[in-house]
């Protein structure tokens, strides 16, 4: 018994080391979304292209969709744009949410860099952004065909992310839809 006690500090050290090692791989800036497995919030927003076109939640349902929160003031969005173009080419349905931005700047951006978005919501005051819990563009939400939020990525979507959880879940829900 007293022999075993000698190993107590070692055990404590191992526990602490394990805990800290796990902490190394955690990204504390990526917050869990409160919306996972819950319906995408309802909205009524103009399109980026025209003040006369109104979009609602109904337009998002029916297909597995990525909702990408972007803005022209957001530097990381530049890094992400080529990847979005590439995904759109592969047939991934991407809906844009232009967040706290101006219409002319947004239109210029799309002209210069290409437009991967099937539709583009215009949210200059960040109303839908607030309902979504957006805290920094770019953010990307994965919606299944029923409009339920299945995943959120805070930060740039690149090859690595698409090969990881986001892409895997996309393929999973896409597969489910095809089976129906």
């Amino acid at each position: 018994m007293s022999r075993l006690k000698l190993y107590l500090p070692l055990a404590l050290f191992a526990l602490l080391a394990g805990l800290l090692y796990r902490g190394l791989n955690n990204d504390p800036t990526e917050l869990p979304s409160a919306l996972i497995d819950r319906p995408f919030p309802a909205f009524e927003l103009q399109s980026v292209e025209s003040a006369d076109t109104l979009y609602t939640l109904a337009q998002l349902r029916g297909e597995v969709t990525l909702v990408n929160v972007w803005a022209t003031w957001c530097f990381a969005c530049r890094l992400e744009h080529a990847m979005l173009n590439q995904l759109a080419e592969q047939g991934v349905r991407i809906v844009g949410l232009n967040y706290k931005d101006s219409r002319p700047a947004a239109l210029r951006w799309l002209q210069e860099r290409g437009d991967p978005y099937q539709l583009n919501l215009f949210d200059p005051r960040g109303e839908l952004g607030f309902d979504l819990g957006v805290y920094g563009a770019p953010e990307t939400y994965l919606l299944d065909a029923e409009g339920i939020v299945r995943h959120r990525r805070v930060g740039v979507v690149d090859e690595r992310i698409w090969a990881g959880e986001l892409g895997q879940l996309y393929r999973k829900y896409q597969g489910q839809k095809r089976d129906e």
């Binding site: 917050l31 869990p32 409160a34 919306l35």
Partner: peptide
Amino acid sequence: LVARYSEF
């Protein structure tokens, strides 16, 4: 706020 930004 918790409904949107989680308990964080």
